[in-house]
């Protein structure tokens, strides 16, 4: 059953630009949905409209069937975790977490119990007396999470919560947050521009560009079958090649590959791991650089006209800069006029 419903929501800023453009989304109870997009795509604005910090210029937002479109943040059953933590530095950890409960006039004993329980949940048991400024970035983010969770919101909103943390901590926290989210079964909307975060945490991903949903789907589906060139280029590494289709063949420079679609311009998408390199007497590409990532190798290639492609290879020793190779795509997708028209 859908807990959060966003229907045709539009946000037009005073300059006339549409930050969010007729966006619709249904989020089921207990689901974690990632809003993934580049900066300026409107994903944060969308989240802030769900939280009540921005007013939509059109459309409706309902939570559990109740229209909250014009309710102020304090009257919405949502809990927001900000990128900057936004902890209140003049209060200690306990007071930060207890503030919302105190506003609800809960008895002090009950507040203490709830705050201690939630601090335990986020791994900060015994930290209540610390000032927030004495905590590390990761601990501050846990406090921010606890502050939202303690109120048992119907929807948890996370606005790039790990952006200010280093790589290791980010990976650890995202696992923890996912664990907590699943254990509590709390419906969550998560904004990020990091595809790793989205792919590893989300039940569903919404790829946003220019205020519109480019694609909505499970992480594996979005990765394997991107429906627009934007999604193809945004999620994971992807070779996007502009070219012409003639007589069932895609042509770019000296590279051709069978493509059974009507003649005309097309964009071909090939994952580096789906682009095999072959020894060839008539090479179509030249090796530019070979990079060893430990677990795999990545070969940068140039077509004759300078188009740069990437291929993932298992055995690096076979390749060196300047070498000519043939290209053999194992799986391709083709796009025309921003729509997917072919997939092998």
């Amino acid at each position: 059953m859908s807990v959060l419903n966003i229907a045709e929501v539009t946000k037009t800023f005073s300059g006339g630009t549409n930050a969010v453009d007729r966006f619709s989304l249904d989020v089921a109870g207990g689901e974690l949905v990632c809003l993934l997009g580049p900066s300026g795509s409107g994903k944060s604005t969308l989240l802030r409209m769900v939280g009540g910090f921005e007013q939509p210029t059109g459309g409706r937002i309902t939570i559990d069937g109740e229209d909250v479109t014009h309710l102020p943040p304090e009257r919405r059953p949502t809990g927001m975790v900000f990128q900057s933590h936004a902890l209140w530095t003049h209060m200690n950890v306990f007071k930060n977490v207890a503030f919302g409960l105190r506003l609800r006039r809960m008895p002090a004993k009950q507040i203490r119990e709830k705050v201690e329980a939630v601090l335990e949940l986020v791994g900060l048991a015994g930290y209540g007396d610390r000032m927030t400024t004495q905590l590390s970035g990761g601990q501050q983010q846990r406090v921010a999470l606890a502050r939202s969770l303690v109120l048992e919101p119907k929807i948890l909103l996370l606005d790039e919560p790990f952006a200010s943390l280093d790589q290791h901590l980010r990976e650890r926290l995202r696992d923890e947050v996912r664990d907590i989210q699943q254990r509590l079964g709390i419906t969550t909307l998560f904004v990020t521009h990091g595809q790793d975060e989205a792919l590893s945490m989300a039940d569903r991903i919404v790829v946003i560009a220019n205020g519109r949903a480019e694609q909505i789907g499970r992480p594996d589906a979005v990765y394997r079958d991107p429906k627009t060139p934007f999604v193809a280029g945004f999620i994971g590494l992807m070779n996007l090649i502009e070219g012409e289709v003639k007589n069932g063949h895609f042509i770019r420079s000296e590279f051709t590959t069978p493509l059974p679609i009507a003649d005309g311009p097309a964009t071909l998408a090939i994952r580096p791991e789906a682009l095999d390199l072959t020894a060839s007497n008539a090479p179509t590409a030249r090796v530019h650089r070979v990079t060893d990532y430990g677990s795999h190798g990545l070969v940068d290639l140039d077509l004759a006209d300078g188009t740069r492609l990437k291929s993932t290879v298992a055995n690096l020793d076979l390749f060196q800069a300047g070498q000519g190779v043939g290209l053999l795509p194992r799986a391709v997708a083709a796009y025309r006029e921003n729509q997917q028209i072919y997939r092998s």
Binding site: E74, M80, A86, W88, G100, L103, R147
Partner: peptide, 21 residues
């Protein structure tokens, strides 16, 4: 920090309460 004020709104404080607290 505006976010601090927004965080207070988020946990249920009205505008006056946010100013005061």
């Amino acid at each position: 920090d505006r976010r601090m004020e927004e965080a207070a709104r988020d946990v249920g404080a009205g505008p006056l309460r946010v100013f005061w607290s």
